[in-house]
């Protein structure tokens, strides 16, 4: 593209791209940035320093660790899928339609973010538990009880993780030009087709970012999970639960487990980032 071309189509592509060489960051930004980075990384570094490297191999060969890790990955992925399936339409509703009380609905959507996860778990029990407001009917009509099941883990994780996705996708939708949808409509696309074939691809990076956030949150989810789904190895004991319980009497094992969780999540996130986020 030439710099003399001033058409908007070209101008839009002129957005700053990642990886541009910076001309030296100003000190008032650089210093707090580095302090912030250190603040975030120091605890992780401490974990590495104090890790029981000698006993690590034996800690990690226990089948329970792999069981918990596998369960964590599966449930976090499923919770992300649930969040995507429900959260993206919800984000669209919040960003693109106008209805009375929308501001309130948006605030309510973010409620799980501020709710202590344990309280979230109790709330889920009260709603979807065997004796819950809705759960009793699920039990009576379909024989479905969510607590103490893997499905319950997914529900708890999705409950906590979905707001991240909704907020992220809604922000992207708001930033996206709604006129693309209008353009699609004038070409004969129904509103849903316009969303599916135009909006969705346009906001894909935002959705991916939201999904990654949600996945990470679901992977680390502890309070709501243990409260709603309980803790049973292989069924509802995810890594964070295993870590927490190991911490009770064997901190070394807990550190080892945490390291596994960290390594796996960093690997997955880095992998996804390369795949999804650099193609835009």
């Amino acid at each position: 593209m030439t710099s003399t071309d001033s058409s908007p189509a070209a101008a839009r592509a002129d957005r700053p791209r990642r990886g541009h060489p910076s001309r030296g960051a100003p000190l008032p930004l650089l210093v707090p940035a580095l302090v912030g980075l250190a603040f975030l990384l120091l605890p992780l570094l401490a974990l590495l320093v104090r890790a029981p490297w000698r006993s690590l191999p034996s800690e990690l060969t226990s089948p329970e660790v792999w069981q918990a890790l596998r369960l964590s990955l599966v449930t976090a992925t499923l919770a992300t899928a649930v969040s995507l399936a429900l959260g993206v339409p919800l984000a669209w509703l919040l960003a693109r339609t106008d209805f009375p009380g929308r501001a309130l609905v948006r605030a309510l959507v973010t409620l799980p973010l501020v709710l202590p996860p344990v309280v979230g778990g109790v709330a889920l029990l009260l709603a979807l538990g065997r004796n819950g407001v809705v759960g009793q009917w699920l039990d009576a009509w379909f024989g479905i009880t969510l607590p103490f099941t893997t499905a319950g883990v997914v529900v708890a994780e999705a409950f906590v993780a979905m707001p991240f996705l909704v907020i992220s996708v809604e922000g992207t939708l708001r930033a996206a030009d709604p006129r693309f949808e209008e353009a699609a409509t004038t070409l004969g696309a129904s509103r849903f087709t316009a969303f599916r074939r135009v909006t969705l691809p346009l906001i894909a990076p935002g959705i991916a970012a939201g999904a990654v956030l949600a996945w990470a949150r679901a992977l680390g989810e502890f309070g709501a999970t243990i409260t709603f789904a309980g803790n049973f190895p292989g069924r509802t004991q995810t890594m964070p639960l295993a870590v927490y319980l190991a911490l009770q009497n064997d901190p070394a094992a807990a550190i080892a487990l945490s390291l596994v969780l960290l390594v796996v999540s960093v690997a997955v996130l880095a992998g996804l980032r390369d795949r999804w986020m650099t193609t835009s």
Binding site: P8, F180, E182, A183, T185, T186, L187, G188, P201, L202
Partner: peptide
């Protein structure tokens, strides 16, 4: 709008950035 036999050329064209020129026209 999707059922009107009306074609629109928008001010900044609003070509779908994720589609090729061909797919834009085929849309």
């Amino acid at each position: 709008p999707e059922c009107r036999p009306v074609g629109v050329v928008f001010q900044d064209y609003l070509l779908f950035p994720h589609l090729s020129a061909l797919d834009n026209v085929a849309f």
